[in-house]
Amino acid sequence: LETFPLDVLVNTAAEDLPRGVDPSRKENYLSDEDFKAVFGMTRSAFANLPLWKQQNLKKEKGLF
């Protein structure tokens, strides 16, 4: 999966995202380093959170 810089994904409308980016899964296009910096946890820890908590975190970080 291709990764993009944080500033390309945060608070970006679906139509302005790079081609192929799923707007409902912007976090998947962050590098592992950016993911950890944004969410303060690994991808696996994030995946283990309840869906509502994942969505709330994504909203807080501008990735929803």
Rank of each mutant, 00 (worst) to 15 (best):
F64N: 14
N48K: 13
L6T: 04
F35C: 00
D32W: 05
E2I: 15
Y29F: 08
W52D: 11
R43W: 05
L57N: 01
L51K: 10
D32V: 07
D32K: 06
E60R: 08
K61L: 09
P18R: 02
V10L: 14
A14P: 14
E15K: 13
T3N: 08
R19C: 15
A14M: 10
L49G: 00
S31H: 05
L51D: 11
P18K: 03
Q54D: 00
D32L: 07
Q55I: 15
N28I: 12
A37E: 12
S31D: 07
S31K: 06
G20Y: 08
K53P: 00
S44V: 13
V38I: 09
D34K: 02
K61Q: 08
L57D: 01
D22A: 04
L49T: 02
N56E: 15
D34S: 05
E33P: 08
A45T: 12
N28M: 15
P18W: 01
G20R: 06
E27C: 04
D22S: 04
V38W: 04
D7H: 15
K61I: 07
L51C: 14
A14S: 11
N28P: 02
A47S: 11
E2K: 13
D16N: 11
E15N: 11
F64Q: 14
K26T: 08
V21I: 12
L51A: 11
L57V: 05
Q54K: 07
P18T: 03
S44Q: 14
M41G: 00
N48A: 14
A45H: 11
T12G: 08
E60I: 10
R19I: 15
A45R: 10
T3R: 10
W52S: 10
K59C: 12
D7M: 09
V38D: 00
K59W: 11
W52I: 10
E15A: 13
E27M: 03
Q54C: 01
E33I: 11
G40S: 09
F39N: 00
S31I: 04
F35M: 02
D22R: 03
T42L: 09
V38Y: 05
E33W: 09
L49K: 02
L17D: 03
N56W: 12
G20N: 11
V8K: 10
F46C: 00
F4H: 07
Y29K: 03
L49V: 03
L49D: 00
A14R: 10
D34V: 09
L63K: 01
E27G: 01
D22T: 03
T12D: 06
F46Y: 06
D32N: 09
F64K: 06
G40N: 14
Q55P: 00
E15S: 11
P23G: 07
E15I: 11
R19S: 15
K36T: 14
F39P: 00
D16S: 08
S31N: 09
K59F: 10
K53G: 06
F35G: 00
Q54H: 00
N56D: 14
G20V: 08
T12S: 12
S24W: 11
D7W: 15
G20Q: 08
P18E: 04
F35I: 01
L57K: 05
V21L: 08
L17C: 06
Y29D: 02
E33C: 08
R25L: 08
W52M: 09
Q55Y: 11
E15V: 12
L9K: 01
D34Y: 01
E15Y: 02
A45I: 10
L6N: 03
M41C: 06
L17M: 06
S31T: 12
N11H: 11
T12V: 14
P50Q: 04
N11C: 13
W52F: 09
F39Q: 00
N28L: 14
K36F: 15
K53S: 11
G40E: 11
S31R: 07
K58E: 02
A13L: 11
L63D: 03
V38E: 03
L1D: 09
E60A: 12
A13P: 13
Q54V: 02
D16V: 06
K26F: 05
K26L: 15
D22G: 01
A37G: 09
Q55N: 14
T12Y: 07
K53W: 11
V8D: 07
S24K: 10
L63T: 01
P18Y: 01
V10C: 09
L9N: 02
N48S: 15
G20I: 08
N56R: 13
G40I: 04
E2S: 12
F39W: 01
L57G: 00
D32F: 05
P23Y: 08
K59Q: 09
A14H: 11
D22V: 05
N28W: 12
D32M: 06
T3P: 06
V10Y: 05
Y29H: 12
